[in-house]
Design a protein around this nucleic acid. Structure first.
Lengths: 352, 352
DNA sequence: TTGAAAGCGCTAACAG
DNA sequence: CTGTTAGCGCTTTCAA
């Protein structure tokens, strides 16, 4: 048998006080005199008391837990986000219940249900790329559980949203590319059902248009947000002999796929084909050449999400849903930095 | 106010049955007739009932939760492990409570205490690199909470352990390196207080010794398991002008640090200096050149850890603590594959 | 096949 | 400052 757990009343008995006194003493309730507190704490230490959160949460009707639903975790963007979320939660005495949908909408639904059953005080969600049905989120909303959508955000009103300026970031990158001389720019665009896919594509289009460059539909290659998608998209254009001079990818993993494909077919980056991506937040890029990108500040995203959520939790009655848009900035490293002459020479070679 | 949560008795009232009946019906207890079950389920759907885990766990005295403590998560090895743990848990109807110590022993202690308070059914732990005090783990053990140490394992008897063959893996790698002609092999060794640091170093030493190569203390550089350590160690040897021909790093991040340092000082891998590392499990290496490594099969590690833990949970009375050692294999990619002649030419250049 | 009684361990509200 | 009473929502006997 599992050894009997020490409870409040065990401590109470030892001291000939009531369980209430012990309960309060342990939580540093001002009701209790310092001496009693000291005595209680001493005994509870000795006995190795460990409060039962289940019981505590049940009777206090709050859980001090925050549920998080992410689509993936073995990926720098999300694992970095989650580390910062943990840091924030830890500093504020909240527990994080992390669930991972693995980009699977059904699983996502189950996870949210579980979090509801756990009676988490709030949720932070980044939706899976195949999310179609939003009913479960409406349920969360109707239960009045504070909710923050982060980065990948569905079309729902009246909930908190924290994201980066996807449109502006994409626009900025393409504008830069044009400035250094690129005209033939493709976009590997990811899933357009998701805001980040849509907005980044829009930013790309707008930047081209505003600079008088015609949009070539062949160069907008739809896929998803993963490595394989980058690889496949590259190979598609390669075999159709339609490769552009520069590829702008919707995420960092997609760019990794491009690197792999380029290597496989013996094309060098950035000499034979150039790349820039949205996302990534590593201080150091270990790719060769180091990949330039539109940076997503993961700490800011995580901190803002947590802050809004906690504000919402502590101030439920009259809380106005917030939308926070975080600025991105272009980080130029070893790609997309103006080696156009080489690119042109490749094209000359190819077409000759 | 938070809207009143639907409870068992709400459903019971609607149907004019007792809460017990509802409770049993919802859990498909054989006591209940099919018709009643159907009716109960129908109503509970309609009402949007969501069982309160707190209450359920409290009264049933089990939580269906497994606590996991990892040192880091924004790192491929751990994030991959955790994804597999989630998969396994999901398939077995367990919830995972993940905590991250950020390589901080104090935080680790707090996390374990929290997991105890949550009354998790079992724990999987990979210890932080600065772990000194093992008391908290002894407490878990004494409470008879099933426990699996994974990968990074402290010296405690009578608990489950799942790890790869660190010694054998290191030995295999060094033996290979010697076979292709290397004699000057350094080891960036990480923290020796932790089993993986110690064992990998031992494997390195043994392989050298068995092949008649003298161990050069200058070439055993202690550090930790992170990128910065790899960078610093490289720079130390570089400035002392003591770089070897090949560096064997204790982890993948340490190798990343080496890549960065080498790039910074303008040395090319593998021509000027060669590298191989322990760990990594990515199907595709995006480094250039692709890094060869001793592979740690994360899925096997995760699955074995979970399986042992569940066995232990379900069979608490007479469970013998298990130690599972998983084989590694050498994955050769673009480094450490026999380009010794070039290395020698570098040395010639350097010393001339 | 169903239900009444009891209790999991804790805290909130109030009274002393 | 301390304690009594009641109950959080559920499950586990055990009796009907």
């Amino acid at each position: 048998m599992r050894p009997k757990q020490i409870t409040l009343s065990d401590i109470a008995q030892k001291l000939n006080v009531s369980t209430v006194t012990v309960s309060k003493a342990l939580r540093d309730h001002p009701d209790i005199s310092p001496e009693t507190k000291k005595a209680v704490k001493k005994i509870s230490e000795e006995l190795g008391y460990s409060p039962n959160f289940m019981a505590r949460n049940l009777s206090s009707r709050k859980s001090n837990m925050i549920g998080v639903v992410l689509p993936k975790i073995a990926q720098h963007f999300f694992s970095s986000i989650i580390e910062h979320i943990y840091d924030f939660a830890f500093a504020n005495n909240y527990e994080i219940i992390l669930t991972v949908s693995q980009e699977n909408a059904e699983r996502q639904v189950k996870h949210v249900q579980t979090l509801l059953s756990m009676r988490v005080d709030g949720m932070i969600i980044s939706i899976s790329q195949d999310t179609k049905d939003l009913e479960i989120f409406e349920i969360v909303k109707s239960r009045q559980i504070p909710l923050v959508f982060m980065d990948r955000i569905p079309d729902i009103d009246g909930v908190n949203k924290v994201r980066v300026d996807d449109y502006g970031g994409a626009y900025k990158a393409i504008e830069h590319a044009i400035k250094i001389g690129y005209k033939n720019i493709a976009h590997f665009s990811g899933n357009l059902d998701i805001n980040i896919g849509r907005e980044r594509l829009n930013g790309y289009k707008a930047a081209l248009k505003d600079n008088g460059i015609k949009i070539n539909p062949d160069w907008i290659v739809k896929g998803d947000f993963g490595e394989k998608s980058g690889y496949d998209s590259f190979m598609k254009l390669y075999h159709e002999n339609k490769l552009p001079d520069l590829i702008f990818t919707v995420t960092y993993p997609v760019a990794l796929g491009v690197y792999a494909a380029a290597q496989e077919v013996g094309m060098r980056i950035p000499d034979d084909i150039d790349v820039i991506c949205f996302g990534d937040a590593m201080t150091q890029s270990f790719l060769s050449p180091p990949l330039s990108c539109i940076n997503q500040p993961t700490k800011e995203i995580a901190d803002n999400s947590m802050q809004v959520l906690l504000d919402n939790i502590h101030n439920k009655e009259d809380f106005q849903a917030k939308e926070i848009v975080i600025d991105t900035n272009l980080i130029l490293r070893g790609t997309c930095i103006g080696n156009l002459s080489k690119t042109n020479s490749r094209k000359a070679k190819l077409t000759s």
